[in-house]
Computed example of a mutant assay.
Amino acid sequence: MLDLFAEDAPWQEPLTEGAVILRRRARDMAGELMAQVGQIAAQNPFEHRITPGGHRMSVAMTNCGDLGWSTDSRGYQYSDQDEASGQRWPAMPASFRNLATTCAAEAGFSGFHPDACLINRYEPGAKLTLHQDKDERDLRQPIVSVSLGLPAVFLFGGFERSDACQRVLLEQGDVVVWGGSSRLRYHGILPLKPGIHPLTGAFRFNLTFRRAR
């Protein structure tokens, strides 16, 4: 049980309407989450995908769940298997699903049941350019994003790529949830600074939960 009066207890930090950071929310279970990431990556290794424009992404990724997100020369899509291997994505661990559902509810989005979890691995210099998560069928469903390992600067902007962005430092265990009127805001990650984290070494990992179908 969480001790809400402890000095380092989790707390909520609003970003804007429909968006909140649940600070340190997943910190106590970070080791368990990373152990599951290792098992998933053993079944479906991290890979640097190629964008439709032919660029190699600096972020390496894998997926778990009923569906997985990927990109190639044909565009961005969800599918029930990794097209590169022809194998179904690894199952989503119960701990992943429970964390995402609970965090969504704490942020005001009850009834969220993710069917996809995109797992990104950042090394120093890796980044995620500003983008919208809009490949999901039901845009009423929120996005739940869990940070593990090295800290990173999260960009949270408006509804046009050129809009000004908030710059927010995310550390291990921080969970960002956005939906409702903020669901289609642009967001990204600045290039990761070098460092060594006790749990993840030279990397940052991010679990992004979605309801794709």
Rank of each mutant, 00 (worst) to 15 (best):
C117T: 01
E83H: 08
S58Q: 10
F46E: 00
A35Y: 00
Q36G: 04
E83V: 12
S110D: 02
R25K: 14
Q81V: 03
G68I: 09
A42M: 02
H48C: 10
A107H: 06
G31A: 10
Y78E: 15
V37F: 09
G65N: 01
P90R: 07
E47A: 08
R74Y: 12
I50L: 14
L67H: 13
A60P: 01
A30N: 05
F109R: 02
S79C: 05
Y78T: 14
P93L: 10
R49A: 08
S85C: 01
L67A: 12
L67T: 11
P52W: 07
R24S: 10
I40R: 00
R56C: 13
H55I: 15
D72W: 13
F112P: 03
A26E: 04
M34L: 15
P52Y: 06
P90I: 07
C117R: 01
H55A: 15
A104Q: 01
A91R: 10
A84T: 12
E83M: 04
S70Y: 07
P90W: 04
A26K: 06
H55P: 03
G31V: 06
D66A: 10
P90M: 09
T102F: 04
A30Q: 09
V20E: 11
A26V: 03
T102N: 10
L33V: 10
L22T: 07
S73F: 08
R25Y: 14
D72I: 09
M29R: 15
R23C: 07
R23D: 02
